[in-house]
């Protein structure tokens, strides 16, 4: 199974809009909550000195200093990119790690996983975390247990993180279909891959922040007249159209 499929019917994934993400962490805990109730995501020392648990989605915050102009803060969610050439899959000795032919989702079969950690080493994006209680590897499932779930209302068949994102910065869809909303977004906004030279060919795309901090434009606000010369009365007449 650790052979990557040569072709997947769909390429399901996320387009994440860095121009819109406010870094609220909502997607982080929504993901935790959903996956905790479905598969379990343990926490160690939850009320102690060093609480630590498995999460499948993490939101970073970077500071970017352009050559000219003010520094910026850009929030950056990070979860599995469901790579087409996922290096995490072929390294797996047990076949627990696999990429689905039908939709390209990369999953871990927890029943087969030995928790060797090699797939996490192979992933450049830090998308895999070993659950310390279960001893098996956890990763974003693209909410495979939601997106086809017949027990959920149609409109809820999308990833938990997408459903919860208050700003709508996360978009879910099929990148194999050039007409899908995500494909069109990526085309329109110049969506890009992370660390493309590693040739992992991520499915998830990041939409770059729009250009910030407009240069000062010549003011369209020409004063009506020289107030010093005409005084308030002159200004009033001018403004009120009396002259």
């Amino acid at each position: 199974m650790t052979q990557l499929p040569s072709h997947t019917d769909k390429k399901l994934g996320l387009a994440i809009d860095l121009d819109t993400c406010v870094g609220c962490q909502a997607c982080v805990t929504a993901c935790k909550g959903w996956n905790d109730q479905s598969h379990g995501l343990s926490d160690q020392d939850p009320y102690g000195a060093e609480p630590s648990g498995a999460f499948l989605n993490r939101v970073h915050s970077y500071q970017v200093e352009p050559e000219a102009g003010a520094a910026q803060i850009i929030n950056f969610p990070r979860s599995c990119l469901h790579c087409e050439d996922a290096p995490c899959v072929p390294v797996c000795p047990t076949g627990a790690s696999y990429k689905r032919v039908e939709d390209g989702i990369v999953l871990v079969n927890e029943d087969a996983c030995i928790g060797c950690g090699l797939c996490a080493w192979a992933c450049p994006y830090g998308a895999r975390e070993l659950d310390q209680a279960a001893g098996v590897m956890k990763k974003c499932t693209l909410c495979v247990d939601r997106i086809y779930n017949e027990n959920l209302p149609e409109e809820d068949r999308e990833p938990a993180c997408v459903r919860t994102c208050p700003t709508g910065a996360r978009h879910f869809g099929d990148f194999a279909d050039p007409d899908s909303a995500v494909s069109r977004l990526v085309a329109a906004r110049g969506g890009y891959d992370l660390m493309p030279d590693l040739k992992t060919r991520p499915t998830n795309k990041y939409l770059p922040p729009r250009k910030k901090d407009r240069p000062q434009e010549a003011s369209v606000l020409a004063p009506l007249l020289d107030i010093k010369a005409t005084g308030l009365a002159g200004w009033l007449d001018k403004v009120l159209g009396k002259i």
Binding site: H60, Y62, E65, Q72, I74, P124, Y192, D193, Y206
Partner: peptide, 8 residues
């Protein structure tokens, strides 16, 4: 890694 290097 973030693709943000293009900004600064």
């Amino acid at each position: 890694a973030t693709g943000l290097g293009r900004i600064g």
